[in-house]
């Protein structure tokens, strides 16, 4: 059989398996972000947001929508891959893949695709929820979609690396709790970086999520604190670096092979 044809089937099998996994447990994977985001829109948007002055000409509710959509994509992509890959290590069914004739890069792409699928699906649902509260705007469809996709890939890869090193279920929640959530909240989802005092504006530039949120905001509203091309550069650099590192971990068999 043609090897490429075989690899195409193998990759499709991994991706579909990953998608079936999160759809099977939709009450844990899809429903909670819908509820969380609805609460964000009600509390920060309607109740508190109505008391806040417009930012860059947009109501506070409109202003935070792109960041909230992106935030759900970030958390869901990460959560999907970290729990799925760690689960496959924990129950040892990752061995099904390691003994099969599938290049390691395809295994990685398969898991990342699962994370991207869940991230984008939940992102889509959150967008629908958002449309119940605001009149959604779309400045540039391609920028919006590409930023969503790249961000989802970056955090799926992040989840994968976390899972490789994780030795217990506690280890898969440490990074989201102590790194991801603070960086997301400080990444300009709820405010413009220009509102920060001098030094903190510079410090914020070290936060990669700031670039993603602003690029997303550009895609939807046409405004950004960051140059769009710099944001793309940061995202692509992360994709390349994290993919290479993940593949290296797989090839070395870190946490997988004796």
């Amino acid at each position: 059989m043609n090897r490429l044809h075989h690899y195409r089937i193998a990759l499709a099998t991994i991706v579909l398996k990953e998608m079936r996994r999160f759809l099977r447990i939709w009450v844990q994977t899809v429903l909670p972000p819908m509820i969380t985001m609805a609460l964000y829109f009600i509390i920060f948007g309607k109740m508190i947001g109505s008391q806040i002055a417009p930012i860059d000409g947009f109501s506070y509710m409109d202003y935070i929508v792109p960041g909230l959509i992106l935030m759900s994509v970030i958390t869901q992509s990460y959560a999907n891959v970290v729990s799925s890959f760690y689960g496959s290590k924990f129950q040892r069914y990752v061995e099904e893949l390691l003994i099969a004739p599938i290049p390691l890069s395809l295994i990685l792409i398969g898991f990342v695709s699962g994370g991207v699928a869940r991230g984008l699906m939940v992102g889509g649902i959150v967008t629908v929820v958002a449309s119940l509260f605001v009149d959604l705007q779309l400045h540039n469809l391609w920028v919006t979609l590409s930023i969503l996709l790249l961000t989802s890939i970056v955090f799926s890869l992040g989840g994968f690396i976390n899972a490789v090193y994780a030795k217990s279920f506690d280890d898969i929640s440490i990074i989201p709790t102590f790194v991801l959530t603070p960086l997301t909240y400080l990444g300009g989802v709820f405010y413009s970086v220009s509102m920060l005092p001098g030094i903190w504006q510079d410090v914020s530039l070290l936060n990669p999520i700031l670039y993603m949120v602003n690029a997303m905001r550009y895609g939807m509203l046409g405004i950004s604190d960051i140059n769009l091309w710099v944001a793309y550069g940061v995202l692509l650099a992360f994709v390349v670096a994290l993919f290479s590192f993940s593949l290296w971990l797989l090839k070395r068999g870190v946490g997988l092979r004796g």
């Binding site: 089937i9 129950q91 040892r92 099904e96």
Partner: peptide
């Protein structure tokens, strides 16, 4: 390979486990 320890996803239906395995080997 039939390993000594169980190494399948305990939460997957049997048919999916076996069909997926064939897929990993490129079976249509």
């Amino acid at each position: 390979v039939v390993p000594q320890e169980f190494n399948f996803n305990m939460f997957e239906p049997l048919l999916e486990i076996v069909t997926n395995q064939a897929g990993y080997y490129g079976v249509e």
